[in-house]
Design a protein around this nucleic acid. Structure first.
Lengths: 226, 226
DNA sequence: CGCTGCGTTGAGCATCGTCAAAGGGCGTGG
DNA sequence: CCACGCCCTTTGACGATGCTCAACGCAGCG
């Protein structure tokens, strides 16, 4: 996730309420926490909805430097107009310990009023999420589990990857198979099997809830070939 | 799709080049048509990408009043920063005859410069697309064809539905089963079968590439129950 | 040293994609 | 006005993929 480009935005959040949250803690719930906006300084989050059957749908992951929730906040900024989305509660939950600052949306709008260039930053971040979801929507079309898993690996590498010593790319986001499967709508066992296949074929290695990618180019090719 | 709220935006596009496009015509192609922005006055479009195997992935549909492409245009407005998305060519193709106006992106930015409130309009529209894709990404989790079809019906009803005489809601967007299936990543035959099931259960009726929804409430319930 | 969370592996079965064939509506052209 | 072609839809049969269920391993931790 990109660092904040404007110093005043960082300062704005640092002047707010500091939360030190633990792994598993729910930071934001769309029904209850309206009117607040958050800045994730350290740690990782997942956002998700629940189905009537109790299944978890992970919508997105967030790393250091993220601002959330972007959609609702921006919606308010353009006058809270009609939404086409079917309403459900969205939760933001820590998947590591985290340091988070929060402020009221109205304070945030006051800041934007004074420094409109911050609005650009916000739109840019919305665009990133937009592309994430677009990407997921495209992934929906892959018939076979392997391709879905590979696609998601590539998306996560783009967002959370950083090169390690030995020429691999490590995904800094710590992921359980459960979270991975909740994110792409597959059974946990299937994810385990496919990741194991990819490991045996030398594409990846896993260590302590982190996935390390080798052969990034070849993984892209896997998506192209039938 | 919401009507343009600002008169000057409409006038801006009407002062541009008018295209009268036929069903099947490709209006925009992301590789070739950079730097242009379009306003759809009449008719319907689909945007899609192609896979290496030649399959069509429909990303979105557009109706009268739409501005496209939103993502790339807004990206330019925030300074063309890094994209996390895997690059592919996106096509915009007419699914009916259409009347379209086009202008250069730089002209468009000049307009925004003069009338910043138009930027809000653009962000609002981006939010709508954002929610569309978020919605599709959620739909990915439905295991069974029936739920995916129902979900998509509800999404299309939200966007393109209008009440007809007899208490039903007609989806103004004309859809072939092929387009429907390309949109949700299923086989055309499966879509045919599921729509037929829904018809027999009294939820919908189809007429001349238009779907009419009865029992909207019950359709929502179908998604909740297992 | 049990418990909890997470990963691994196996077996059976239902769903949906694929292939195939046929039917219907509409426009064009003879 | 009929024949033909094209596009879209319908229906059936079959097989493979991935989900479910179940059992086990393994590590960390109270």
């Amino acid at each position: 996730m990109a660092q904040l480009q404007d110093k005043s935005l960082t300062e704005f959040f640092y002047a707010g309420i500091k939360l030190t949250s633990e792994d598993g803690e729910i930071v934001y719930e769309s029904e209850a926490s309206r009117e607040m906006i958050f800045f994730l300084e350290e740690g990782y989050l997942k956002s998700y909805t629940l189905t009537s059957e109790g299944d978890t749908n992970i919508l997105n992951f967030y790393g250091p430097g993220s601002i959330f929730p972007l959609g609702p906040s921006l919606r308010k900024s353009v006058g809270n107009r009609k939404s086409y989305r079917i309403q459900t509660t969205v939760y933001f939950e820590c998947i590591t310990d985290a340091i988070i600052y929060k402020r009221t949306v109205s304070d945030f709008f006051a800041l934007i009023e004074k420094k409109p260039e911050i609005y650009q930053e916000l739109v840019y971040r919305l665009l990133q999420n937009y592309e994430m979801y677009l990407s997921s929507a495209e992934a929906m079309r892959f018939r076979y589990a392997r391709k879905r898993v590979v696609h998601q690996l590539l998306v996560l590498t783009n967002r959370f990857g950083s090169s390690d010593e030995e020429g691999g790319t490590i995904i800094e986001l710590p992921l359980t198979h459960q979270d991975f499967s909740d994110n792409i709508g597959m059974a946990r066992e299937t994810v385990t099997r496919e990741l194991e296949n990819l490991r045996q074929d030398g594409y990846i290695e896993t260590k302590d809830h982190h996935i390390i990618i080798y052969n990034l180019e070849n993984l892209y090719e896997l998506l192209e070939t039938s």
